[in-house]
Write a protein that binds this DNA or RNA. Structure first.
Lengths: 112, 112
DNA sequence: GCCATAGTTAGGCATATGCCTAACTATGGC
DNA sequence: GCCATAGTTAGGCATATGCCTAACTATGGC
């Protein structure tokens, strides 16, 4: 029973914010420059930068600056810790369902 | 590209705390009564209860009170949203590695 | 050299979060 | 009936978090 500890904690904290998740989703398609990443959001640049910093500190993304442009990319393997931890917590039945490609409907959502 | 939205957000926020994660880990073995769950922690009961409430509001756990005892259990399928989302973010290479049972070592850890 | 572009740094502010104590309610046991 | 046990409710408090503005630095282009 490994103890992913701090790393897992940092990753989960990083992903626990909608803005940061949106950034990750964007980056899962391809690397992007800071201003591209900031574009979809209403917030000021410095605010977005803070989010990027959290993601980078958590090891979820990496970035490199060339000239005055900073390119950010998803860090390969960064989400492995989470994936592993998740695997341990989910029930055998849930894992089985995955393998079969099933995804049971959750209990009644608000709409209907 | 589904939008798990609020549900995913609630789950991630819930898991972004070490205490709550520890509770989830404990419950992944078996359901437990509130006082059992509280035992390992140094914090006051009301504090632990707040954590339980966050987990329950996020749909991660359910609880039922019989007499004066409340039994808490992991809610089946509760972590599916996270699992699905994770699957979308991870690279094809990472998924491949999973299937092969490989888990690449992350960048140098503190120990060695 | 000068202006525009792409980030950065610094400082501030309101709300959210995690924890605590005190006091209370609802069973269970004898 | 009375005490113990298992939670709950209410209120408070310090720190963390997310966002902002103002001001500044470092290229790139002409």
């Amino acid at each position: 029973m490994p103890n992913y500890g701090d790393e897992l904690d940092a990753v989960l904290r990083a992903l626990a914010d909608p803005t940061r998740r949106a950034v990750v989703e964007r980056l899962s398609r391809s690397p992007a420059v800071v201003s591209e990443l900031a574009a979809p959001f209403a917030m000021a640049l410095p605010s977005l930068m803070q989010h990027l910093r959290v993601l980078e500190d958590a090891g979820v993304v990496t970035s490199e600056k060339q000239g005055r442009v900073r390119t950010v990319s998803l860090r390969p393997g960064a989400l492995d810790v989470l994936h592993l931890w998740l695997g341990e917590q989910r029930t055998p039945a849930e894992r089985q369902a995955d393998r079969l490609g099933l995804h049971l409907t959750r209990s009644a959502p608000k709409d209907t």
